[in-house]
């Protein structure tokens, strides 16, 4: 498989006379293979939008390497821009133009046939409202228009930052179907979103960023498997046997935690080892199930952003990876 998007060691520091310097990207790496729907996840302020803006030439990096469709960017951006459709953060359009005018002007600027304008408006469900001014649109409609503008070029790489923002449930489902159809047609899609359930449903692979560094990357199933911990939920025929079973499994080298009606067992190679140890002492298992995790829990674990009772987490309070990571990532470093 060829990489459509490659980022290696990307660094960006924002400097402010008043607040000092803030390291927004600190050696960030990311690879997206062709034909995939790739989820790009991270808490607020983790560097997602900075990464996308840098990739698209809107922000100048302080270091690192980036390539799109095999071409080094930002140097080759004018060459590859025609094959990259993107929306970055919230959709922004001149409010007094109609949707059709907005796309028509972009089509002119990008040498795209005007016939494509109505095609994409139909694709995102805005055909009927094409002649209305953008300022009359809801956030969801603006979001659809933004997606339409990104699709106008019929790009090979589609980068969407929070495309489901403001969409109603039907719209979210339509967007999901659209992403899948686009990927099936050979388009590579990079999707940044906080709706992790959606990402898990749509994406083939993910990259998770925290405080400007990559904390996880790979196919969704692999990332989930890596962080599921291989835990097992064990129930016995008699609840009264749980303490004995816990002692036996601990002696066998497993980490066991006892709950009211079951045990949670970690650190065993194979589930069969559990049944064997218990059966040797005439303890019979009524349920033996691997504990599955979802993307949301993995995300919260990896980024350290799970809400804690009684605490108000600040935007920059997330996980820093790497031994040489700075102690603080916020303003004033």
């Amino acid at each position: 498989m060829t990489a459509v998007l490659e980022i290696a060691g990307l660094r960006k520091t924002y400097k402010s006379r008043r607040r000092g310097a803030r390291q927004a990207l600190d050696g960030f790496d990311m690879t997206v293979e062709a034909g995939q729907v790739h989820g790009f996840l991270g808490p607020n302020g983790s560097g997602k939008t900075t990464t996308l803006r840098t990739l698209l030439g809107l922000i100048k990096p302080n270091g690192g390497r980036m390539a799109i469709l095999g071409q080094e960017v930002p140097a080759a951006l004018p060459v590859v821009a025609g094959q990259v459709g993107a929306i970055v953060e919230s959709p922004q359009f001149f409010p007094h133009f109609t949707a059709r005018d907005t796309l028509s002007l972009l089509a002119d600027a990008g040498r795209v046939p005007q016939t494509r304008v109505m095609e994409v408006l139909e694709l995102v469900g805005l055909q009927e409202r094409a002649k209305e001014r953008v300022k009359t649109y809801s956030l969801g409609m603006k979001q659809r228009l933004a997606v339409a503008s990104a699709l106008l070029k019929n790009p090979k790489l589609l980068i969407l930052d929070e495309p489901a923002n403001g969409l109603d449930p039907g719209g979210i489902r339509e967007m999901r179907t659209l992403m899948r159809d686009l990927a099936a047609s050979g388009m590579t899609v990079v999707l940044s979103s906080h709706i992790l359930g959606e990402i898990q449903l749509i994406c083939d692979s993910v990259t998770i960023i925290s405080r400007g560094r990559r904390v996880a990357a790979g196919p969704v199933a692999e990332v989930l498997a890596q962080h599921s911990g291989g835990g097992l939920r064990v129930r016995l025929e008699a609840v009264t046997d749980l303490p004995v079973a816990a002692e036996l499994l601990t002696r066998a080298g497993a980490q066991v935690s006892t709950h009211a009606d079951h045990l949670m067992v970690d650190g065993v190679d194979k589930p069969a080892a559990v049944t064997r140890v218990l059966a040797e002492r005439d303890l019979y298992v009524s349920e033996l199930a691997p504990v599955t995790v979802d993307l949301e829990s993995v995300f919260l674990e990896l980024t350290g952003t799970a809400p804690m009772p009684g605490q108000h987490r600040q935007v920059d309070e997330s996980v820093v990876v790497g031994a040489d990571a700075p102690a603080q990532g916020g303003w004033g470093v």
Binding site: G57, A109, G110
Partner: peptide, 18 residues
Amino acid sequence: GAEWSTGGMMNLLLWRPQ
């Protein structure tokens, strides 16, 4: 000015990054 303040300029630069 209106292009800058409404984000139209950013949109255009995504299309023509020159």
